[in-house]
Amino acid sequence: MAAGISDLTDATFDEEIKGSAEPVLVDFWAEWCGPCKMITPVLEEIAKEQAGKLRIVKLNVDENLEVSRRFEVMSIPTMILFRDGEAQTRIIGAKGKQQLLQDLHPYLTP
């Protein structure tokens, strides 16, 4: 799988999000979602470049309905940024790298 992007599940979600020192961006995705696949390489690049400032993980909505429902995900890709276990911002829809970085910038560890 992608370097630096691990998979979360319903079972591991809370522990991983709450236990993270860095902000965590969760990418809600599914196999059948074309735009989700298209942003995977973009997220991989960002994960590499922002190592230490941001952690990026993904959650398959098809297999993890509990977390997807809890955050009322109704469209994918949806990316939610968590800090100290709390959702800070939500990005809906695939975007290019510069736009994503711009949207995430205020929430990154300085």
């Binding site: 735009p35 298209m38 469209s75 890709p77 829809g93 695939a94 975007k95 290019g96 736009q99």
Partner: peptide, 9 residues
């Protein structure tokens, strides 16, 4: 660039 609209690669 990636988009969830039809305006994408």
């Amino acid at each position: 660039e990636p988009s969830s609209s039809s305006d994408q690669p």
